[in-house]
């Protein structure tokens, strides 16, 4: 490995982390195909690298959101019981499958994510109302409106089931899975989008750690690839949040939904 490769990996992490944060996706959706297609990394190593980057961004973001009380801590801990099981099963399955099969499954995931991104644009402003008759009640301050939001969670077993599936996708493909989990938490559990996003991001660090050691045990963690990529994604995620506050364009989401669609086709044909 050359020093140029290290710098390119750092840059790849920054770019994918920035785009991911700007679009409200983790970096994994962009990082995995980038490492596999542009760097020619074996699929398992690309996924393992993304999982480590997810732990870094979840921990950094979680530290802020827990202190600001946007994370529903008790809900997060409850959902982690199933998300960890899902991630372990996903990690084990991934290591039983060949790189080609994983690439095809990842291509299918990208196709779904690109449709979800477009669906999310249409759903904007159509958030489910909050309820007070559920469990795991929480309160947080919404800085954008200056109001205090109180809510409780409905249908916890169903939300736990969604977390099991999201954990499985995360362990299998090295992505956060928030694009599926967050809308489900809002629609099924009646959790406000901000709290659902923060709680989902907070949980994903533990989910990713559950599968990280499986990839590590199988020799897919390459320190010189993971470190620059993870540091890049971490710094990119901060940059993305800052840029995301300034650029609120539906066009950007459309552009990257189409980019993901093209990457998906490329991965299918690989």
């Amino acid at each position: 490995m050359t020093l140029t490769s290290l710098l390119l990996l750092l840059l790849a992490g920054i770019v994918t982390g920035t785009i991911g944060a700007m679009l409200g996706l983790g970096g994994g959706v962009f990082l995995v195909p980038f490492l596999a297609l542009a760097f020619g990394l074996p699929m398992h190593q690309a996924i393992a690298t993304s999982i480590l980057a997810i732990i870094a961004t979840s921990s950094a973001g979680g530290a802020m959101n827990v202190e600001r009380r946007i994370v529903n801590l008790r809900l997060g801990m409850t959902l982690e019981t199933t998300t960890v099981i899902g991630a372990i099963l996903g990690g084990v399955t991934a290591n039983l499958l060949g790189g080609d099969v994983l690439t095809k499954i990842f291509a299918g995931l990208l196709l779904l994510v690109s449709f979800m991104m477009i669906w999310r644009i249409r759903q904007r402003g159509m958030e489910e109302p909050t309820h007070q008759d559920g469990v795991l009640a929480a309160t947080y301050r919404d800085d954008s409106t200056g109001t205090i939001v109180s809510y409780s969670v409905r249908r916890v077993p169903a939300v736990m089931l969604v977390s099991l599936v999201a954990g499985n996708i995360s362990g299998l493909l090295g992505v956060g899975g928030g694009i599926f989990k967050v809308p489900s938490m809002n629609i099924i559990g009646g959790i406000p989008m901000k709290a659902a996003t923060a709680t989902s991001n907070f949980m994903i660090g533990v989910t990713a750690a559950a599968s990280a050691f499986i990839y590590f045990a199988h020799g897919h963690i390459n320190p010189l690839i993971v470190a620059p990529a993870a540091l890049g994604v971490l710094s990119g995620s901060f940059l993305g949040v800052l840029l995301g506050r300034k650029i609120k364009s539906h066009v950007l989401t459309w552009v990257f939904a189409i980019v993901l669609l093209i990457i998906s086709i490329q991965m299918f044909l690989r």
Binding site: L52, I55, A56, S58, S59, G62, M77, E80, G205, V206, A208, A209, A212, F213, F216, I221, P223, V226, A227, A230
Partner: peptide, 12 residues
Amino acid sequence: LVVLMLTPFLRV
């Protein structure tokens, strides 16, 4: 990387 992988354990 080891510290990073163990951070969620510390958090729990």
